[in-house]
């Protein structure tokens, strides 16, 4: 059982390894990338500091103390450095340039191939981005440790699900974007919308009540808000279990949606030849 699973995973491992090596070649981007994440977190540190300062020392905002908010920011950006991928851009350019027409005749699943590339990239980013960025942030700012070992475990599990979730979302987004001529424009809008809805910039608790009610039924807040709250112990017990369950369910649902979209795209490729 395990053996068959492993052997069927082998081609995907090869894809994962290739994207791993590819990134290594881009050294300039690497060093600048680390600094950028650090700088993003830094600027948000100042924005929150100003806001908390306005409210008075020891105040809470949206249920967060300032140290908690700082920790939310730091763990959020560190997590983004892990789950970030460009599956959408890749799949869109592959379809547009007709490179996927060839994979249609090969016995590989395009979605699985694409996602293993994304996960390979994430595994790689974990070592080269997330860990150094996390260390840098912990050294420079008073980041709170996870409230308990269990919270840490849940954060890690949730972070892994985030990576899957982002991969699944981006796969869909890429296939939708391909229907327009301004793919890059759509993807850019996606970043801005997801940065808002994921809770990366502002925790969901800050949204007006009606918006929040809608957001909890969407997948996006599981990208950042859910893992962030787990680390801080703002979601524990049944609440934590429900959040993780929803997160996992969204991964499955979006993977399924991706398959449907891919099937439609593949039909178009077969008809139009790419």
């Amino acid at each position: 059982m395990l053996a068959t699973a492993l052997s069927s995973a082998r081609p995907y491992l090869a894809f994962a390894r290739t994207s791993f090596l590819n990134i290594l070649a881009y050294r300039a981007r690497y060093f600048v990338g680390i600094l950028t994440y650090f700088f993003n977190a830094t600027v948000w540190y100042y924005i929150w500091r100003a806001l908390f300062h306005e409210k008075g020392e020891g105040a809470t905002l949206g249920g967060f103390t300032f140290p908690q908010m700082l920790t939310y920011v730091a763990t959020g950006w560190a997590l983004r450095s892990f789950y970030f991928n460009e599956v959408d851009r890749d799949i869109a350019s592959q379809v547009r340039e007709g490179r996927l027409a060839m994979t249609l005749i090969k016995p590989v699943d395009v979605q699985a191939m694409t996602l293993s590339q994304a996960l390979g990239e994430s595994a790689f980013r974990l070592v080269l981005f997330t860990v150094p960025i996390g260390l840098l942030l912990v050294l420079v700012y008073p980041v709170l440790p996870p409230v308990s070992p269990a919270a840490l475990a849940l954060y890690l599990l949730s972070g892994l699900l985030s990576a899957l979730l982002v991969g699944a979302i981006n796969f869909c987004v890429g296939l939708v974007a391909i229907r327009t001529t301004s793919i890059l424009g759509v993807l850019r809008a996606k970043y801005l919308v997801l940065e808002l809805l994921s809770g990366l910039l502002v925790p969901v608790a800050f949204f007006p009540e009606p918006v929040r009610k809608v957001l909890v039924w969407l997948p996006f807040l599981h990208m950042n808000d859910t893992p962030g709250r787990l680390w801080l112990g703002l979601a524990t017990g049944a609440d934590a279990a429900r959040s993780l369950g929803l997160q996992a369910a969204w991964v499955v649902a979006l993977l399924a949606l991706g398959r449907l979209l891919w099937r439609a795209t593949a039909r178009r490729i077969e008809v139009q030849g790419g």
Partner: peptide, 19 residues
């Protein structure tokens, strides 16, 4: 494309409004 672009702007503007 205009709509997508506007959504992006609206999202980043919302961050400012929220905060």
């Amino acid at each position: 494309a205009v709509l997508a672009s506007f959504l992006g702007t609206a999202a980043s503007f919302s961050v400012v409004l929220l905060l």
